[in-house]
Design a binder for these strands. Structure first.
Lengths: 342, 342
DNA sequence: CTGAAAGCGCTTACAG
DNA sequence: CTGAAAGCGCTTACAG
């Protein structure tokens, strides 16, 4: 059964397409009688405007694109949820693409979205992305672009982030405040800006308290699919090599939970022998034993804020107002649980 | 900077729009010389065809819709990943909507997708969906619809599922085979067809082995955000009320892990005192201690198969071939781990 | 209050 | 091998 068009409604009613169009959109210069007639028939026929035609005329699609490094990831799926919830409220649809942390794929996906003529783009960039030409293309086409979580500092666009350094300082400071004397760090990939910033925050906290920084106490996790295993392996190495370490700040909860498991297997007591602070506040962290002290990373809020900012810029552009880029930094908080001392 | 159009290319080259269009699409009746000229200029100008216009002409958008009850969910995020991976290969974009298990929202979202004129729809329905009018609308508009995981048996369309009854029978049979004499079941919501089928499978296994079914041994979990807690609570109740139970088949891994935690806290040994089998093979299940025996539910494969089937139907329709609906049942397997006896 | 007309940017059947 | 023309289904400035 083929779709109903304005022309069909117009013919049945013996009026013009223009009038039907205007009636449906409640233009003030159409008589109430005509409006009623048109609307009734439209409902009866289950008329749905052809989005392709509307988009072509209005040059907007009420659709945005979202590129994200990974879907199967608690933090990111929360971000997506935040974005979708907000987008739905404002009548926007979201096309989602997963870059798999690949710069090449990300570049191709930007091109796809641009061809699709989405109204704007939301992106959390891949760790491997070092060139930003594909992203400036978006901007130079006059399309709003909002980056979140994994951002390119150099790019002139709006950004939604947390303060990774501060959060890492808070985490490390808590270890110091609860009496830890020698503190290790399990960091993320060398290329990830978030990991770098958390690492810097860790060092800053040590410095602020006149603790000696020891690069031997820093372990690297790729934070891929085997994060948990990496946590276990590094925890074992740590215990074997550095018996004097009494605190560890870990880049990600999943890795931290791996570490907790290893400690438990080795008979190392948490927090008596070693205190642990994670990062992200994954839902399992409150539930395991001992529960994990961690930094809450507000994924849902980040998604919400990112969409809202994109929406604001969409409106600004539409109303020919100057587009104002914003850097929005959301609060993180330390959640104290049983893996650190009181 | 405004977008380049065919007309602009045609003007610069002093040829017609038709020829430019055909050159770009490698029509055989355009000279190689012209093609080369056109393609070169198109590249230089960074020409991207206006999808709105193309869609309007061709009546297809190379975009599909996906409605899913929840994004923040390990199984579903894996399904999404499977769909996106496959869609990308075939040049399709995916608009994702989350129904939050709400029938009303689901209905609205179907309407949104239909207005957007997506080429087809992939859906896993909400537990609360009992009317399927919105879904038959899709079909009656001649749009392919493929349901996966949570399906409506009554609807005439393609489906991708696992055999929940068989999987549950396998799980329960394994408990029986490893010596359990009195077996409990933690089931999911009363309205969820999957939960119902798993419950039936549990009963069938009992019957097949002449075990008495005892409704007192069946506990209900809503399987929402507090699945883990529900697992703990029910495990505690179970141990208090039914000391003779020596095996339990649990609807979902997360609930099962909650139960394992409660057992551990209460000093109930797994599998010596009680054996546990979960369902879904969540990645944490292999990693906790004791590791969890479970049914592998192949989310990624389900997503892949669902898209492939949709794609097949899209092609059939396009080539005016008869559209053949398929019910695809993917294999599940019992993964034996440390929470059951050998 | 209503309608004719132009046009968004493409594709494709047809003519030459 | 090239191009003129029609048309996809809308929206909106303009005329009456």
């Amino acid at each position: 059964m083929s779709q109903v068009t304005l022309l069909q409604i117009a013919d049945k009613l013996k009026i013009s397409v223009s009038t039907v169009s205007k009636a449906l959109k409640d233009y003030p210069d159409v008589s109430e009688k005509t409006k009623a007639l048109v609307k009734e028939l439209a409902t009866t026929l289950n008329y749905k405007p052809n989005a392709f035609a509307v988009n072509l005329r209005t040059k907007e699609s009420k659709t945005i694109g979202l590129i994200i490094p990974a879907i199967v990831h608690h933090f990111f799926s929360n971000v997506i949820k935040g974005i979708l919830t907000q987008a739905e409220k404002k009548g926007y649809l979201v096309i989602i693409l997963q870059s798999n942390e690949s710069y090449e794929l990300e570049k191709k996906q930007i091109d796809l979205l641009l061809r699709q003529r989405v109204d704007g783009i939301l992106i959390s960039i891949a760790n491997s992305t070092r060139n930003f030409g594909h992203l400036s293309d978006v901007l130079s086409q006059g399309k709003p672009l909002v980056m979140f979580d994994k951002i390119a500092k150099i790019l002139e666009c709006s950004k939604v982030v947390i303060d990774d350094r501060k959060a890492a300082r808070d985490a490390t400071q808590h270890l110091i405040d609860t009496g830890c004397k020698r503190i290790a760090h399990f960091r993320g990939p060398l290329l990830s800006q978030n990991s770098i910033d958390r690492f810097i925050g860790y060092r800053e906290a040590l410095e602020n308290n006149n603790y000696v920084y020891d690069s031997d106490l820093v372990y690297i996790c790729e934070c891929g699919d085997s994060s948990f295993e990496e946590g276990k392996i590094n925890a074992k190495k740590l215990v074997q090599k550095h018996k004097d370490v009494d605190g560890v700040f870990i880049n990600t909860d999943l890795v931290a939970i791996g570490a907790l498991t290893a400690f438990s297997e080795m008979g190392v007591r948490v927090p008596d022998d070693i205190s642990v602070v994670g990062f992200s506040n994954w839902f399992m962290s409150s539930v395991i034993s001992p529960s994990l002290t961690t930094i809450n990373q507000p994924g849902y809020k980040i998604g919400k804020a990112a969409f809202k900012q994109l929406y604001t810029e969409l409106k600004q552009r539409k109303n020919n107002l100057p587009v104002v880029h914003k850097k929005i930094t959301l609060n993180t908080e330390l959640i104290k649980r049983a893996s650190t001392k009181v």
